[in-house]
Design a protein around this nucleic acid. Sequence first.
DNA 1: CCTCGCCACTAGCACGTGCAAGCGGTCGTG
DNA 2: CACGACCGCTTGCACGTGCTAGTGGCGAGG
Lengths: 332, 332
Amino acid sequence: MRAGVGKRVTAADVARSLGLSRATVGFVLNGTTGQRISEATRDRVLAEAARLGYRPHKAAQALRRGSSRLVLLVIPDWPVDFSVSKCVEEASHTLEEAGYSLVTQTHHPVGTARPLWELLDPEVVVGFAPFTPEEVAAMQGCGITKIIPGPEPRPSPPDPLGLDDGPRLQVEHLHTRGHQRLGFAATTDARVSGLVASRLGAAREAAASLGLPPLVVRPVDGAPDAAGQAVQDWLHANVTGVVAYNDDSAAMVIGAALRGGLGVPADLAVIGHDDNPYTALFVPSISSIRIDYAGLGRHLAALALLAATGRPLLDGGVDAATAVVARESTGA
Amino acid sequence: MRAGVGKRVTAADVARSLGLSRATVGFVLNGTTGQRISEATRDRVLAEAARLGYRPHKAAQALRRGSSRLVLLVIPDWPVDFSVSKCVEEASHTLEEAGYSLVTQTHHPVGTARPLWELLDPEVVVGFAPFTPEEVAAMQGCGITKIIPGPEPRPSPPDPLGLDDGPRLQVEHLHTRGHQRLGFAATTDARVSGLVASRLGAAREAAASLGLPPLVVRPVDGAPDAAGQAVQDWLHANVTGVVAYNDDSAAMVIGAALRGGLGVPADLAVIGHDDNPYTALFVPSISSIRIDYAGLGRHLAALALLAATGRPLLDGGVDAATAVVARESTGA
DNA sequence: CCTCGCCACTAGCACGTGCAAGCGGTCGTG
DNA sequence: CACGACCGCTTGCACGTGCTAGTGGCGAGG
């Protein structure tokens, strides 16, 4: 027996329907500690609330308690949403268990739309990539103090998201397949320059620790036939295996190699990163790095909750399931 | 001179600081009609509000006026976010000019996270794809009545988003290139079955109106080597051109053809849909359909505003810029 | 001089919720 | 039987805003 359409069921409705006070209903529904409510009353309240289809009015809750219990996740304008969505789903679920909710916003640096943090006033803003000083200032101007990653140049725990494992696995995979001289296919896309640098750094470290010669780094986009030039350079440097920044870069390398009459992986082995779904569709299919996005989501949620409540949450960690997906482009 | 961090500046603060009543401040800041406020007072209020850094408390506004001025855009779990983001940006901008804000949610049918419409109570929920009856019921249970597309089987204006143009252009493109017997590459993904049916229907209409024989429809995923089988079937049916549901389907067809020793486009021409960025990376590169996502965004925003306010908004339309992007897979 | 209307503004309610404080009844204890 | 402890519940305030009804002052008209 739901109330008429358009009329919201309030806690007062539940109370009135039971002949109780609104406070009692509130105590039951919030499980307020320090209040004594008999089991019988509790059950009656819960049953009646369910029967009437009561839903707390979030705006009123936010107003009263002064906090929206909202976490805003700002996703950069990367073309990797296929994986991010899994991450978001998991983070959302984790936050929900703690009474928080996740709202995502894909952020356009050039965008004109007003950022969501101005109107949702979330308790925490989490970004996949660090925010610019201007953005941080804008958030602080809205009263938002909990920002992840923090404004410091380098996050306190280096690589808190455990994303440095991928490049290491790329290098080790090619090394295991017998490749000694490796190239790195970079993108010139300014939006992800930080991420490129991070992955390149990790790849360099991995190569060094395996005793391999320095990586031959080449951009594969930006200029016309940049990928073709990169492939030429790698051939001259006797490079036989290429670590690509991501799957798009890998695809560009493979495309240039094929168009140049080379065999992949026979003449040049290539491994991408992110395990974008289309990697399996290519000819040859593209080896890549699968990331534990679910774990990453849980990790982000834990970070956000820590910031919001001050209480740490047990966090399963993220980097356990980062793994190589071997396909044809490296000889699978 | 901003108030101390953590303390919100309210309209009452502005009023107190000027020795005015809170109502006066409210009238000025809302531009309430039917109230007489002297120019001098108005200026003083605006200046003081700016000086103190006043930001209206959205939760309080939503509580008081009973409407969140929020539009929730539910994006299905499609891997097309590259284009959706442009659409969202544009819709967001259009809505903003009308005082509304856009929040997006990528929706997972199997997801366990509670949908955002339960906690943001948006005025309008807009979906790229029609909602299931269960979803519609869930929304109505939360008091949300304005849902786009509506629950009726077929939206009142057929194809309100103007998305039927793409398949027509695909068919016409192949026809122009001399192909008579066409195939249609479908996906078995249940999440997009409605969209597949819609695109297939449009393609069939286009083929019929050109006097072409019926489309040979085959799924290209779901079963192992479904794409390979589809290619075989098309060959036997003398099909030389394939209209793919989207770029992924196109890639699967091309992959299967290449692995079967066929030439693309020499033996089989293929055109995708959505102009996914990776279509340019394939070998051969994949012809596709570019959609005017910016226009689509404006159109969606206009629909949402119409539902929210009842007043129609002038709408530039969407289908003008849907266009073929000719690449190698159809002989460019 | 009184009244009426207008101007510019104020008092105050309502939205739905969370929670501190209080209050009547019952039970155990001296 | 008196008294305090405690249980179970209610009264009532506060959050910040939008807006209706009203209010005092003042000039104009009769």
